[in-house]
Amino acid sequence: MTKIMTLISTLLITLSVNAADYAIDTKGAHASINFKVQHLGFSWLTGRFNNFEGSFSYDEEKPEASKIQVNIDTTSIDSNHAERDKHLRSDDFLNVDKHPKATFVSTGFKALGNGKMKVMGDFTLNGVTKTITIDAEKVGGGKDPWGGYRVGFSGDAKINMGDFNFKKNYGDVWLELHVEGIKK
């Protein structure tokens, strides 16, 4: 009996070690939340959110058990044009006075093999919460040269301005996500 208990607890410890927790490396800016929107249908306009923080847990063996949470400071939107950024922060779009935070909380992971996965989660933007799916891919992972352990992913998702009650709706926004986590 005690042997079984020991076995189970050993297994649990092993499992929790494998399902490691990672902090997204925003301090070193090895992560970015970029977006692109079509300009008049002629070209892509790109921008990003400069300030965000988050963490995830990831287990190579059990990717389905992964979790991720990210908090985004919507006032930090940056499209490299002050007047446009001012407009994007106004109540025509992000309404950052009322909704200075956007969040993404995963609700499920689906492994597709080869490091590819679908990440389902609740995305809250402009006070509206919608389920979105991120097509994600593991880029790489391992020991870094400074004594830490890192793993990184990239992902793409598409949202629509109208779904998040933007007063002005100029269509779809493509999110291009890059995260590198440092094992806690």
């Binding site: 490299n80 044009h81 002050a82 007047e83 001012k86």
Partner: peptide
């Protein structure tokens, strides 16, 4: 200061 905030 509005219009020149991005260096333009």
């Amino acid at each position: 200061l509005i219009s020149t905030a991005d260096g333009r």
